[in-house]
Simulated assay, not measured.
Amino acid sequence: MPLPAELAARARDVLAGRVQPVPARNAATVVLLRPGPQVYLLRRKSTMAFAAGAYVFPGGSVDVRDADQAVAWAGPSPAEWGAAFNTDERLARGLVCAAVRETFEESGVLLAGPGPDSVVADTTGDDWEADRLALIDRSLAFADFLARRGLVLRADLLKPWAHWITPEIETRRFDTRFFVAVLPEGQRTRDVGGEADRVVWQRPAEALGLARRGEIFLMPPTHRTLSELSQYDGVGGVLAAPREIVTIMPRAVEIEGEMRLVTA
């Protein structure tokens, strides 16, 4: 894809060594699914510094407290997640906790339950909303939130899907692991505001069609993920699909005098 003039100029500076890339922050993204399959998408506010106006999946940066070993845990161990994402155990723990925390913050859906085989049935009460807001402003740590409510994080409800790193030419960069998860029975998403001004449930192929017609904007990782998901007839196929996690970092190249971003 062609780069805007300002970003193209920065790309030339980075490629020439005149500007050093900024470090990428560790982050987690969750592709939330429901039968159809449909995916949950948020439109980021036009005032956001990163990906303004883009339709994205819930997600965000890893909080240093997300790696707290006090979190009650069910499912694949942090070591197993580390193997899946080719990272160390501590970061893997943080990524999984960030995935569950950010999903709750940005959709109201909580992948946790009173025990290793259960999930919270409803998170729409005022007390849940107060906790969600406290997690967002970081006055409440995720481990403390789970402990106070006697909840177990359900790592087994997540599936590793992809690993994307923001191109080196960007001024804000994220090293993001993608997960997929199915909306738990009894729970429902809510229009929780914050960084988004619109939320939708949409079939992957429909979202891709809207993007093709210029009606919505999708960033490359979102577009690629939706393209992959559009190949499946249901959530069962998505969850059963074998995945080899390969790191993807789009890069800037100059083609016939025009700076373009490529993922190959």
Rank of each mutant, 00 (worst) to 15 (best):
E80A: 13
V109F: 07
R90S: 10
V62I: 08
V62N: 02
D117R: 14
A181H: 07
A11R: 02
T47P: 14
G209W: 11
L3A: 02
Q231E: 13
R188K: 14
G257C: 06
L91Y: 11
G59F: 04
R251V: 13
R12Y: 05
A8P: 12
L111E: 00
D126E: 14
P160S: 00
L133V: 13
R132N: 13
D63N: 10
E102Y: 01
L33R: 01
T166W: 06
G115K: 13
G17H: 02
P204H: 06
P204N: 03
P58R: 00
A141F: 12
P37C: 07
A130K: 01
E258N: 01
A207L: 12
A264S: 15
R224Q: 14
D233M: 10
G82V: 10
Y40R: 06
I165F: 00
Q38Y: 09
D144P: 04
A28P: 12
R10G: 03
L153A: 03
D175P: 11
A99P: 05
R93F: 08
L95C: 00
A147C: 00
W164R: 10
R243V: 08
A121I: 02
R154N: 05
A24F: 12
V262F: 08
L261T: 07
A134S: 14
A54Y: 13
A72H: 05
S61F: 11
P167M: 01
R25Q: 14
F145T: 09
V180D: 14
W73Y: 06
V22R: 12
P21Q: 08
G214R: 01
E6T: 12
Y55L: 13
Q38T: 11
D233V: 15
D233N: 10
T171H: 13
L95N: 10
T123M: 06
E215F: 15
A98L: 04
V262N: 05
L183A: 03
T189W: 03
H163V: 02
D127P: 01
L95F: 03
R190L: 13
R212E: 15
G193T: 02
P184Q: 11
V71F: 02
A99T: 03
L32D: 08
L229K: 06
A51I: 13
G237R: 00
G237T: 03
A147T: 03
D197G: 14
D66K: 04
R173S: 15
V39E: 00
D122N: 09
Q69R: 15
L135G: 11
